[in-house]
């Protein structure tokens, strides 16, 4: 979707504000939101791509106004309601309704330490997908504007680049985010010259690499 989350190349967002000796979490609730996100992710009711898309669906003004963990909190509540795990009334009243909770995988304290380090796998080396490109090929990112989730940023659409690396076959976010299956596709690192992306004002030496799936690309 052409959403506010697709920030690459925008102007007017202000200076980069850094904080010396920044804590991992500024307030205890931020740590709780982070941990709840991991714990409810273990239910297996949604996937990483769906979860990212849920943040993209926040109203644009809220997206810019809210802090990172406020966005995560809003996303978590939204996903839990949408998947029938809690109701809006329950979150508003803070009281569980009488009906039995759905049977879901509850992450135990013993499992949690390993879970923090859990290896999430997104490569699908055995999937039957055809690679249309090899390293060195000149490609053009498609001018596509799907309403749904995609990982092809607007600033690269229609632009020409070169395949610099073949990563293998990976879960395709554009379908996975919408529970239409993983439909794994070949993934490449594509090198775009800064001048191709941004015009003659950009340095002739600089470049931007994006990781792009096969269906995002055409031969140039």
């Amino acid at each position: 979707m052409n959403g506010i989350h697709d920030l690459g190349g925008m102007h007017g967002m202000g200076p980069i504000v850094r904080e010396e000796n920044e804590p991992v979490f500024h307030e205890p609730w931020e740590g709780r939101v982070y941990a709840i996100t991991r714990a409810i992710g273990a239910f297996g009711k949604w996937n990483l791509d769906a979860s990212r898309h849920a943040i993209e669906m926040l109203p644009p003004a809220d997206y810019l106004r809210m802090s990172y963990y406020e966005k995560w909190l809003a996303r978590n509540i939204g996903l839990l309601i949408r998947h029938g795990i809690i109701t809006r009334e329950e979150i508003e009243t803070g009281k569980a309704a009488t009906e039995a909770a759905p049977a879901l995988r509850r992450l135990s304290a013993a499992e949690a330490a390993a879970h923090a380090n859990r290896r999430d796998r997104y490569s699908r080396p055995d999937a039957a997908a055809v690679a249309r490109f090899v390293v060195g090929d000149r490609v053009r990112a498609r001018n596509m504007n799907p309403e749904g989730h995609t990982r092809l940023p607007r600033y690269a659409r229609g632009k020409q680049g070169v395949i610099s690396r073949h990563h293998g076959i990976f879960v395709f976010p554009d379908t996975n985010a919408h529970f239409q299956g993983e439909q794994p596709q070949h993934l490449y690192s594509v090198r775009f010259a800064a001048r191709e992306l941004w015009g003659d004002e950009a340095s002739p030496r600089d470049c931007v690499h994006l990781d792009l799936w096969d269906p995002y690309l055409d031969h140039a």
Partner: peptide, 12 residues
Amino acid sequence: GLVDPAALDTLV
């Protein structure tokens, strides 16, 4: 019964 607070402590 869906989340164990001790698991959250460990993750934090």
